[in-house]
Amino acid sequence: MGGNFGGPVIDFAGAPIPVPLTAVEVGYGLDSNLTVHGGLHTTSLLFGVGQIDFGATYKFLEQKKYFPNLSASLGGNVAYSPSEKAVEFWPTLDVNAYWNYGKRDSYFYVGVNNYFVLQSRMAFDQPQNQRMIFNPQMGHVFKPKSGGYQFFTELKFIAPYLDSDKAFVPYKSIFGTNGATGFYLGFRKLLGSKK
């Protein structure tokens, strides 16, 4: 079980801050290579929107020296607003390479997160030209000596190929006027782990 905090960085009164999105998450290892997981987006609840994400992550290549572990995660993100009577669903696909190090298998990772947009039209029947939102990401998961905790930080480069200069939301990006940079912090507590 765990929780995370963070989102795209925006300019707020002159200061760059991540949008304060929060979620609680649960995961269950079916075996050493397959984990199913889900998350409840608590910030969305404050807006009267029930939002969850879910998925399964499979490690399909084991680390060999400098050659990393490779994993893929297929899932989705669902949001429902009772007041709007609206449901939104975005399938997601993550592919990550990660390198374990140390006695407790802390790890660095790099990869891509992809959001798929099912709607083909936007407001005023404009075509939805971005059916896949491609977000490179990198992060680190630290496993301290005791307590069965994991602490993670992640940097996400959200749609770095798209011009965000004219977006209504004042996104901040390390790529200047392209995309947005996301920053996330989180922790997990391993329950029932043999380690």
Partner: peptide, 21 residues
């Protein structure tokens, strides 16, 4: 501005309903 929906769609790229926020 054209509409709030247009601002939300163009800002999030996700086709999200503006009524969510």
């Amino acid at each position: 501005l054209a509409s709030v929906e247009n601002l939300v769609h163009n800002s999030t790229l996700l086709g999200m309903s503006p009524g969510f926020v």
